[in-house]
Design a binder for these strands. Structure first.
Lengths: 231, 231, 231, 231
DNA sequence: AATGAATGAGTCTTCATTCAT
DNA sequence: TATGAATGAAGACTCATTCAT
C-alpha cells in the first residue's frame, strides 16, 4: 500500500481500509502502520493518537460530504426540489459506499450532542477535545447543511417548494429524515420481501412522502366535503 | 444499592447507572457488581458476559419503548395524528431521560444493519450473536413499530391523516424523522439561539412539517393557478 | 448417567468420562456433578476437593492395575516368562483402553518422585497430601509390582528366566521398559510406516529384546571364534 | 537477573528458573517478566503466549538433549556399548539436573501421542499447535534418537553389541528403558534401603540387565545341558 | 444428604503510547 | 523523519469451593 504519496495521507487511507473491515475499536495502530508500510512510531508523528487519527478521518468525511452537497447544488437546470431529491438518493448511496466516513459523521453528531451538554461533555475523551482536527470540525461541520439550506431556499424561489416553509428548519428536517432513513434500513431488511414494507418499496414511499411535505398536496382526502364547501 | 430485589434486576439497574455515567466501554463488570452489592462472579452467573448484559439491557429498552408506544396508543379520544404528535414529543423526551436505553435501541438498529448484510454480519461479536437476549430481540424489535403503524392506520380511518398514505411506509418514515430529529439536536444546540435555527424553534418547525406531510396541505403554492383551473 | 448406584461411584464414573474426553484441568467440578446427575455441592460431600477426587480415581486405577497383574499371575500352566510376556502385551492394552486410569498411575509415579525428595515435596499441593486416598495409595502402590516380582521369581524357579537374575531388580527393569515403551508410542507413530521403525515392528522387536534379556542368549555374536575355541 | 544478554534468552532463563521452583501452572507470566527484569508486555513481544514460551523451552530442551547424545557419540575410543552405557548414566543425571527441561521432553512425548491420534489431537491447545517452536519441534524431535541409533549401529560394527539386533528397534527399546528407569526412581526411593530393591542397587542392576540384553549372555543357566548337546 | 446461589482469588492478554537511537 | 523495542495500565472471565437452607 506504500508509495510516494505523502505519509500522512497514506496513514489515513490505511486507517480507513482497516476501520472499514474491522471497525475502529478492533483495528490496532500497529496494523494501520503496517498497512501504510511505515513504522508504528511514525504514525504517532503524524497523528497525536488514535482519536486524533479518527478525528482527521472525520474531518475528511465532512469534506467529502460537503462535496456531495456541492455537486448536487451545482448541477444545472435543477429545481430546488430536484436537488433535495438528488440528495436523498445520493446520501444513502454515499453512506453505503463510504461506510466508515458516514459512520464517522454520525459519530460526530453524537459527539456534538455530548459536547453541548455540560453534564455529558466530561464524558468525551480529552484526546478528542485536544485534537486539532476536532477543533477544525467544530468550525466546519455545518457547511454541508448550509448548502442544503441553500437548496431549500432555491426551491422556494423557483416554486418547487412551498413558499411558506422556513429554509433552515426545513432542511434540518430533511436531513433528519435522511439520517433516520439510513438507520432504519437494517430492521426493514429484516422484514423480508413479503411484508408490506420491504427494501424495495421503502425508498420510493419515503421519497414520495418527503415530496408531499415539501411541495404540499391538494387535499384530495375528502374531496366531497371540501368541494362541497365551495358552493 | 443492594436490596431484596432479585439479583438479576439488581445487576441490570447497576449496569444502567454505570453505563449512563461512564459509557459501556468504560464501565467494568467489577464495578457493576460492586454497585449492585454483589460479587463479580455472580454477575457472570446471571449474565454470560458483558455483551449479554448489554443485550439484556437492550431488551428492556425495547420493552419500555413499546410501553411508550402503547400508552400513546391507548389514550382515549385522540386521533391518529394526535397520537403521532404525542409520539414525536414523547420519544425525544424518553431519549433524554433514558439515554442509555435509547442509545441501546439505536445501537441495536445498527446491529440489525450489520446482521442483515452477510459481509458485515461477521463483524458482530459472537458473544452478541449467542446472547439469549439478542435472540429475543430479533423476535420483538418490531413491536413498537407495529403499534406505530396502527396509529397511522387509525389516523387514516379517523380522517386525521391523508387516506392515500400507506401505513407501514408512513410510519417508518415518521420513525426515521424522529430518530434523525434526535440525532440533529446536537449540532443545532451548537448553533446558538441567535441563528435562524435553534433549539427553540427546531421542534415546532419539525412538528409542523411532519403534520403537513401527514395531513396534506392545500397547495397554497400557486393557489390561483390551481383554483382557477377548476373553472 | 444417574441411577440407583451409590453416589460416590456415580461421581467417580462421571469424572472418568469427563477427564477422558477433556482432561483433568479442563473438566469442571460442575460438569462432573451434572453428568452424575447430582448437585455440585454433593460432589464436595463425597470428595473433599478436586484433587481428592483425582486421588480416589488414582486409587481405583491402582486397584484395577493390580487386578490385571493378578489375572496374569493366576493363569494356569504358564511359565514366569510367559506371564511377563502377557504383562507386556496387556499393560499397553490397558493403557490404551483406560487412558485416564493409566495416566493417573503415571502421574502418581511422578508424585512419588517429588514426595521422596524433600526439596520437591513442598511442590505437591497440600490438598493431595491431605487426601485420604493419597494416604491409602502410599500403602498400596507397590502391590502390582509385588505380583510382578513374584512372576519373575516364578520364572526363575521354572527355568524360563535366567537363574542369576535378582527378581526385584529384574521386575522393576521390566516395568521401566513397559512404561517407556508406552511413552515412545507417540513419536514412533509419527515416523510413519516406511521407516525402519514403525508401529508394526516396534512391539515384536521390543518383546524379543525383553525375552533375550530374561532368557539369556547364546553368544552367537562371534560364533566362529567361540565355537572354534571349543575345539 | 537482568543483564545485557538478549531479552529473548533472558525471558527463557527466567521461565526455566520459575518453572523449576513452582511448576508451569503455578508460575505467572508476570513473575517471569519480573524475574527477567523486564515488563510484562515485552514477554508477549517475544513469546506469543505462555504455551509458546513453554514450547520454546521444550525446543531448547531437545537441543540440549541432542548435545548430550552428541557428546557421548563423539567421545573417542569408546565402543557402541560403552556409549549406550554412558547414555544410561548421563540421561538420568541430566534429568535430575535439568528437571524442567527433562519434564518438557517427556511432556512433548505425551503431546506427540495425542498429536498422532485424531481423536486426541483436538485436546491439544491451539496455542501449542500454532506455536512456531512446536512446529520446529515436529521437525527435530527425532534427532537425539537418530544419534542413539548410530551408537547401536556402531556397537554392532565394533562387536560390542549383538550383530543380530536391529539398530532402530534396539535403540528405541533402550530409550524406553531409560525413560521408565527415570520414572521408577520415585517409588523405589520410597522402598527404603532395607528392601531388596533400593536406590543403591537399582541402577547397577538395571545396567547389568541392559548389557545382557545388548551383548547377549552365555547361557550359563544350564551349562550341562547345553554343553552336553555339543558333543 | 442435597441443593445451587454466591463468592473472589487468580491471570492471561491486549494495545495505545513512549522514547532511545 | 523514522524505527521498533519497551512499557504498563486495564479488564474480562473462570471455577473451585462454601454455605444457608
Amino acid at each position: 500500500m506504500a508509495g510516494e504519496k505523502n505519509k500522512e495521507k497514506l496513514i489515513l487511507d490505511s486507517a480507513v481500509a482497516l476501520f472499514t473491515s474491522n471497525g475502529f475499536q478492533a483495528t490496532r495502530m500497529e496494523d494501520v502502520a503496517k498497512k501504510a508500510g511505515i513504522s508504528k512510531g511514525l504514525t504517532y508523528f503524524y497523528y497525536k493518537n488514535k482519536e486524533d487519527l479518527f478525528m482527521a478521518l472525520t474531518k475528511k468525511a465532512f469534506d467529502q460530504f460537503k462535496d456531495e452537497f456541492r455537486e448536487v447544488y451545482r448541477s444545472k437546470g435543477k429545481s430546488g426540489l430536484d436537488m433535495i431529491n438528488d440528495l436523498v438518493i445520493r446520501i444513502p448511496q454515499y453512506a453505503r459506499k463510504n461506510q466508515v466516513y458516514y459512520d464517522a459523521i454520525l459519530n460526530f453528531l453524537d459527539l456534538m450532542k455530548k459536547y453541548n451538554d455540560p453534564k455529558q461533555r466530561v464524558l468525551i475523551s480529552p484526546l478528542i477535545l485536544e485534537s486539532v482536527h476536532f477543533q477544525k470540525l467544530l468550525e466546519i461541520h455545518h457547511e454541508p447543511a448550509k448548502i442544503g439550506v441553500m437548496m431549500v431556499s432555491q426551491g422556494i424561489k423557483d416554486g418547487s417548494i412551498r413558499p411558506e416553509l422556513q429554509p433552515e428548519i426545513t432542511f434540518y428536517t430533511i436531513w433528519s429524515m435522511i439520517i433516520g432513513f439510513e438507520k432504519m434500513s437494517g430492521p426493514i431488511e429484516y422484514e423480508g420481501k413479503e411484508t408490506k414494507i420491504n427494501p424495495e418499496n421503502w425508498q420510493p414511499g419515503f421519497l414520495k412522502l418527503l415530496q408531499d411535505m415539501l411541495k404540499g398536496t391538494i387535499q384530495a382526502t375528502r374531496p366531497n366535503t371540501v368541494q362541497t364547501s365551495l358552493f
